[in-house]
């Protein structure tokens, strides 16, 4: 087989099946015409080689016939893919958190943040993988969505944010609140608990006392961040990273607290919400203590979920390079 035939065959390998034979015949005819014109009817091997180099790499020559074929997901499908991908990620995250919440708080199953993160790390890539596969098939069939049919109204544009300015009032409120809680845990840790009614019996929370060191550290970190932001007056890439680090630390401390409450409740046969309802009849004393500990666990669980979501959103914005157009929502301190 001559070099020319090998070249045409290689171009054909990268062409769409539909027009392959036709394009190959035309290319062969054109290559031979050019060679004859330049070098006569019997060009040498090196002349053919030089000419084919000039003609271009087979893959590139084929790509010019079928530009869309060079993409797994082409420009016409990509905006739709991106939109659906974020919906899928949000839906999978939401469903996992909901399932985790039901398992831990209602069914009283054992709590493990590593297991939760592990299942997220598996389910999100799998869901996105299926989505990519679907779009690759749509791309192969040259499906083109009409996303821009609706008339565009400039009035629908979002308001410009005061992007770099921080909300001082919010920060000062968070700071004062954080200091009050910190004072409580530092000087009156025995007062952390709950009462059944005004003037009623006081029940201390043994789990918070158990992890008091971590709670204090988390509160100090939150207060420190608020002071730093007030001092800076503006948000910066560094302050965003510090905020994410502080959130990760809060997640760790909240996970410890939820885990501690789980263990405490499970030891009293009231790990799940329904276990507690069942055991109400058999427990005569301390039922309010169980209810109170359930309430504490629920509050820490909600704070944990909200902090995880907030951190993911912040990471997503940083990755998209759009974080400068947003303001970071300051959550209440971890133990609030």
């Amino acid at each position: 087989m001559s070099l020319i035939d090998r070249y045409i065959q290689e171009v054909g390998r990268h062409l769409p099946r539909k027009n392959r034979a036709d394009i190959k015949t035309e290319l062969l005819s054109s290559v031979v015409d050019t060679l004859e014109d330049r070098f006569g009817t019997e060009p040498s091997e090196s002349e053919v080689e030089d000419f084919l180099k000039e003609f271009g790499q087979p893959r590139e020559v084929a790509a010019a016939y079928f530009p869309e074929g060079q993409y797994l997901i082409g420009p016409s499908l990509y905006p739709l893919f991106r939109m659906i991908a974020w919906i899928v990620v949000a839906a999978v995250l939401g469903a996992q958190l909901l399932a985790w919440g039901v398992a831990v708080f209602i069914a009283g199953e054992s709590f493990s943040i590593l297991e939760l993160l592990g299942s997220m790390l598996t389910s999100i890539p799998v869901s996105l993988g299926w989505l990519v596969l679907t779009f690759i098939i749509l791309q192969r069939f040259e499906v083109k969505p009409d996303l821009d049919d609706e008339p565009w109204d400039p009035q629908s544009l979002p308001q410009v944010n005061e992007e770099e300015d921080i909300k001082r009032g919010e920060l000062i409120f968070g700071l004062v609140f954080g200091i009050l809680i910190l004072a409580l845990v530092f000087f009156f840790p025995q007062w952390i608990g709950f009462v059944t009614a005004p003037g009623g019996k006081f029940y201390p929370n043994p789990v918070i006392i158990q992890y008091l060191g971590w709670v204090k550290a988390s509160l100090v970190a939150g207060i420190g961040l608020n002071i730093y932001l007030l001092w800076q007056g503006r948000r910066s890439p560094v302050s965003r990273l510090v905020k994410i680090a502080e959130n990760l630390f809060s997640i760790f401390v909240l996970a410890l607290l939820v885990q501690g409450h789980n263990t405490w409740l499970a030891a009293r046969g009231a790990g799940g919400f329904f276990d507690t309802l069942e055991s109400i009849s058999s427990i005569t004393g301390g039922i309010w203590e169980l209810v109170g500990m359930h309430a504490f666990r629920m509050a820490f669980g909600v704070a944990l979920i909200v902090t995880v979501i907030e951190t993911l959103v912040m990471l997503y914005r940083i990755v998209r390079g759009k974080v400068q157009a947003r303001t970071i929502t300051v959550l209440p301190p971890a133990s609030a």
Binding site: N19, I23, E26, L27, S30, T34, F55, G56, E60, V61, A64, Y65
Partner: peptide, 10 residues
């Protein structure tokens, strides 16, 4: 270039 013209004609 030939590699430009033929796809254009198609």
């Amino acid at each position: 270039e030939q590699g430009t013209l033929y796809p254009l004609l198609r």
